[in-house]
Amino acid sequence: MQQDAVPISSILSLLTGDGGNFLGIIFLSLQVTITAVTCAGLVGLPLGAGLALVRFPGRTVIIVLVNTMMGFPPVVAGLAIFLLLSRSGPLGELGLLFTPKAMMIAQFVLVLPIIVALTRQTIEDLWTEYQDHMTSLGAGRLRSIPTLLWDARFSLVTTLLAGLGRASAEVGAILIVGGNIAGFTRTMTTSIALETSKGDLPLAMALGVVLMSLTLVINSLAFGISRVGARFSGKS
């Protein structure tokens, strides 16, 4: 074996060489993932909090379903969205298949259950602590949701990171709904899949290292912010 185990030269040539294309791929990856996780957060955080607090018939069933959906196989999610968005499918009119938006939808669907399930757990725990105080203030369960979400913010950052992890590592679903079109829907993970299939394993590995580094940076930043914040408002 003369190949480097960690192909530093490949990484360097990726970053310094004909970089426009590569930076575009990184930018698209971040854009798709961050948009999907943000939207999933905007929907999932209130939904998870609602599921934690509001009692309604069938609640337990929904909780079990959401927990199950956390392990939803990405390929199945991708296929379902593909069938929905295809020109022959019910949402074909929108012309979203093989676009970044389709990839965002796929990741949104994959990330949402994680955010809902983890948020529900966090908020339920916090509610046991806050219930008396909030009830005494005359705030019912629904009205307490914003308070609980805000006060759980540092735990919820971890929840969002879990979602980000699932989204950024995902390849099966976005390959199906995005089509891995060069310069348009090609992301870090689909590039890695492509380079592997071309047999360019060092390049695939280099891309993987770059992806890992990016994920590391994002996680460190979020962890740092949440640590500093948690210290500021007292240990959680």
Partner: peptide, 28 residues
């Protein structure tokens, strides 16, 4: 796909059928 098949053939010391284009460009 073809690339994955070539990777597998390489790993298993097996025969396979490939189109010449993919074969020539294939790096592994």
């Amino acid at each position: 796909g073809m690339g994955a098949t070539l990777n597998t053939a390489n790993a298993m010391a097996a025969y396979t059928l490939s189109d010449r284009g993919t074969w020539i460009a294939f790096a592994n």
